[in-house]
Design a protein around this nucleic acid. Sequence first.
DNA 1: AAGAAGTCCTGGGCGC
DNA 2: TGCGCCCAGGACTTCT
Length: 289
Amino acid sequence: MPELPEVETLRLGLTRYIVDHTIDKVEVKLKKLVHGDIHHIEGAKIKEIKRFGKGLVIELDNHYAIAIHIKLTGQLIYRGPNAPKKITISKDKVGTVPNRWTHVIFHLDKGGLLCYNDLRQFGWIKIIKTEEVQKLPFFKELGPEPPVAKALEGQASLTLDKFKQLVKKAKGPIKPLLMDQTKMSGIGNIYANDGLFDAGIDPRRKTPTLSPKEIETLYNSILKVLQKGLTYHGATELNFVNALGEEGGYQQHFLVYAREGEKCRNCSSIIEKFKLGGRGTYVCPVCQR
DNA sequence: AAGAAGTCCTGGGCGC
DNA sequence: TGCGCCCAGGACTTCT
């Protein structure tokens, strides 16, 4: 599911293809996904695309912005003179945009098109004054960001010291803490599972039982798996695709995530799956203690 | 206050 | 083959 590496991959692609385009017209096919008045952005020019945790912000030249959260199944696909016509709709499925899951179309100048697709319709698009973006609930509560991508000006970084403090303050199992966007931003189920495996730590371990050494190892493992996700341009688990509608590659390199019943890459034990905090959780019963 | 459960939604996997 | 059931999950709301 789209986490920091996936959303950053998307941001990089969008930056390349839609910055300096003008939004001529916005076509909203599913009203509930769009909040705010589209007339504020029609005629405006796209200046910059920022990412805060798993959230995207498209900044315009008229003091308005488009804040977007793609949640589980959102896609932002550019079509234009430089873009391929065929796109990946989901795993192994090829098609074109717009399609039946396209709920919003941004018509750009120079014949460009930006389609927002969302199979499960969990995502949202908010049209808002740029200065108001940081006041939105999602952005307001965001914790510091693991330092793996280019940081924005003034953005808090999740340093090792900060990570140690957070772990020390928490009481419950370690995995839900990693995924709590108000504590640290950008980590979701894929990278939490793989990070814990890389660190050799059981996701159920209560945070007070982690030694200082284990906390530092976990910190480094999280940065490592996020970095690896970025290197492979994200993971296509449900239907994540980049700005051109192409799949990521990290799913080929999952350590434990979605590998129930398969062999551990370290010791060949069988990967187990269970629920923790309502989320699918994967472990190697031998490597993770 | 913090933690658990319910909410949104639909394709796909399963059983019969 | 085809129908119906139920699950997955990020962030938010509601309940305990």
